[in-house]
Write a protein that binds this DNA or RNA. Sequence first.
DNA 1: TACAAACATAAACAAATGTTCATGTATTTC
DNA 2: GAAATACATGAACATTTGTTTATGTTTGTA
Lengths: 193, 193
Amino acid sequence: MKVSPKKEEFLQESLKLIHEKGFKATTMRDIAERLNFDVSNSYNYIKSKQEILESFLFRTSNEFHKTIDNVLDSNYSAEDKLKSLISSHIRIASEKPYEVALLVNEWRNLKEPKLNEFVTLRDTYEKKVSKLLEDGINNKIFKQMDIRIATSVVLASLRWFYDEYTVKKNEKNLNPIEFERQIVGFILSGILL
Amino acid sequence: MKVSPKKEEFLQESLKLIHEKGFKATTMRDIAERLNFDVSNSYNYIKSKQEILESFLFRTSNEFHKTIDNVLDSNYSAEDKLKSLISSHIRIASEKPYEVALLVNEWRNLKEPKLNEFVTLRDTYEKKVSKLLEDGINNKIFKQMDIRIATSVVLASLRWFYDEYTVKKNEKNLNPIEFERQIVGFILSGILL
DNA sequence: TACAAACATAAACAAATGTTCATGTATTTC
DNA sequence: GAAATACATGAACATTTGTTTATGTTTGTA
């Protein structure tokens, strides 16, 4: 599928607007206005408003899945797999913060059957993380923990990071490398000295 | 301010619906339909749709603020303050999961000037947490860490918990006491054995 | 019992929204 | 230079939405 530069511009501007205002609150007229053309012209680029959301969400979801699959397929120890997963997650979130923001905040606006499809993908991703943690526990690398809690907490610890790269630069942005170092420290051994 | 039982029922049902579908996607007619009366009747209970959101959001925000203020005012060590904070957070989220869900997911739908007011409250809350962590670092109880990252990660680790109490009971719900034990373990000393 | 408050309905509204259609102008490609 | 493709406009549409107004019924209470 070829993407003309204008279409790409349309999609990127839509992405940013949807991130700013939320999917429901962003109207087709909002998008068109920002691009200085009439609403109707938008439909030369997309078939429907939903399509914008769907394409971004599934594209980004796929990227995360590919990444975790590669990590799980590797011969690293559970500890190094987890480090590698963290690293990949941070890379994606810093490279494509708006896409990740959409993934986190706007998936609820999908309609069936896409919504179901997405939720299934999300559950699958969680299960992959759970498996990684479970292996680590079985190999006595990680503590004995409730897998469900551990999975949620690890994912929650990473999920907010896109925000550092969408917010205005009134403060210095976090350096992804340093962030990775700190987050690895936190997840592996907590904050206690 | 007295709240009649019918008004309370109206608000609670609105709360659940808004949580299910999102604020924008929930129409006044949706709410009325669920309560088996006409849309117009809703306006005997509230002045506007926005008011529903505002009242829940600021009420819950206040509760969190009161709680953290009490924690900070105590004579506990930084470590015990943090434990106490975690405990309070989990209590609120398990007692009022829908209110907390709204706080986390729907604040973007506030309009100015309420939006600004809310964001300020939220920033203030974060600063309070940062202060707690900073004190702990200065007293050599916590590791040397980037305060901004540590604050975000601690809050993110707690934020998702309401979900355990809003989701259908197809799986056993988490016991808040056990959750607290695990989360304290995680935040204080990570997952590494 | 009478009066006020609470609870309810029906009809209508203005504005906003996603989308389509018919049509026109650039731009690219052969 | 002709033909196809990309880019754009304006008008119109059917729905949906929050909210108001006028009016009626039920319920608690003095």
